[in-house]
Amino acid sequence: MDRRTFIAGCGAAAALGFAGEALAFSSSRLSVEVRGDGPDVILIPGLTSGRAVWDGTVRALPGYRYHLIQVAGFAGDPARGNASGPIVSGVANEIARYIVEAGLTRPALIGHSMGGIVAMMIAARYPSRVGKVMAVDILPSPASGFGFAGVQVAPLADALFNGLMSSPQGRGVLDALIGGFGGSDVANSRSDSAVVARATHELAVMDLTPELPKITAPLAVVYAVPDIPADAAAVDRLYRGGYARAHGARLQRVAGSGHMIMYDQPQRFYAEVRAFLDDRP
């Protein structure tokens, strides 16, 4: 855990009277900042994003103890342990360890994009540690969202990954793409290009669909649809099919939004999160 996060966490913890287990946790793959007081909620950002992506949500929905994840290598944080090894599953395993070491009892998990994959992975592989899960704008097979359903994605992903990482020119292209991911959050553009490339490759070849039946916690899926009716209907079909094997998954569309729903439709997003958190498992 970096020094600034530790100091900030200590101050917040002392003020709220829970300076203890959560702050003892240390990981080379992520850090955790604790804010607020109440039932425990773990917030997991997506590819290139930092914990700041959740600032509006935390402000809009007080009354919870939020555990905000920062993935090493994203949004200006050094790569540290994510410089090697699996990133997506590595982060999932570390959050599962954090739940135990921080003494959390079946917290709610909310993850955006890659963070949604991480949240579902934890729920499927460590079901006793999770109270409920919300996945935001992500399919269990992320490549299917880009029209690759039924296609052998691995060779394409391997070729793209190797091409981008094998030369300074390729890394330059990747850095430019990462800058475009940042949107209104400039910190996102400071993500480590090698970490982003490896995480993107993992997501491209990943399919959590076979693991969906292992998720026993309530699962909510919030996804964005465009204003064009025909396109919106196609996205609806994609999500219904993608989550067909999830027991009782509740799917909720958000119209007129891009991928960053918390920025594009904040009030609607906060309402969905509030409904999710208020519905006790």
Rank of each mutant, 00 (worst) to 15 (best):
M114D: 13
V88G: 07
V222W: 00
S128Y: 11
A12C: 00
L164H: 08
K214T: 00
Q169D: 09
G20M: 01
G17C: 11
V205C: 09
I87S: 00
F18T: 15
R190Y: 06
G63Q: 10
G183D: 07
R29D: 06
R190I: 08
A194L: 13
M260C: 13
A244N: 03
S89F: 11
L16Y: 06
L47Q: 04
A14H: 08
G256H: 05
S184H: 05
A8Y: 05
P281N: 04
V71I: 15
A249M: 03
A92L: 10
D279Y: 00
R268S: 09
T105I: 04
A143G: 14
A143Y: 13
V41H: 14
D264N: 08
V100N: 04
Q252N: 05
A255Y: 06
S128T: 13
L174G: 07
P210N: 11
F276I: 02
R35T: 10
V58Y: 12
T209L: 06
A197H: 10
R280H: 11
Y270C: 10
A13I: 03
L47E: 06
L238D: 00
M260T: 14
D185C: 08
V32I: 12
P45A: 12
A230M: 02
A72W: 10
A135C: 11
G85A: 02
A96G: 15
G163I: 10
Y263T: 13
N82M: 09
P168N: 01
D2F: 05
R80V: 09
L109Y: 14
A13L: 09
I69W: 11
L43P: 11
P226M: 03
Q152I: 08
R80P: 00
Q70H: 07
G150F: 07
V136I: 15
Y243Q: 03
V133Y: 05
I95R: 00
M120L: 02
Q152M: 15
R250A: 14
G81S: 12
V196C: 03
D55Y: 04
E21T: 14
D175N: 12
R268W: 03
F161W: 08
I215F: 13
D236K: 00
R245Q: 08
M1V: 09
S191R: 06
H247F: 09
R35D: 10
A22V: 02
A135V: 14
V41P: 08
V91A: 07
A12Q: 04
T200C: 04
S167F: 01
S189F: 13
A75E: 09
P86S: 11
D55W: 01
E33F: 10
I95E: 02
V221H: 00
G73D: 06
A102E: 05
R198I: 01
G179H: 12
I138G: 05
L238W: 02
G63C: 12
G182N: 00
A217M: 07
G241I: 01
S113K: 03
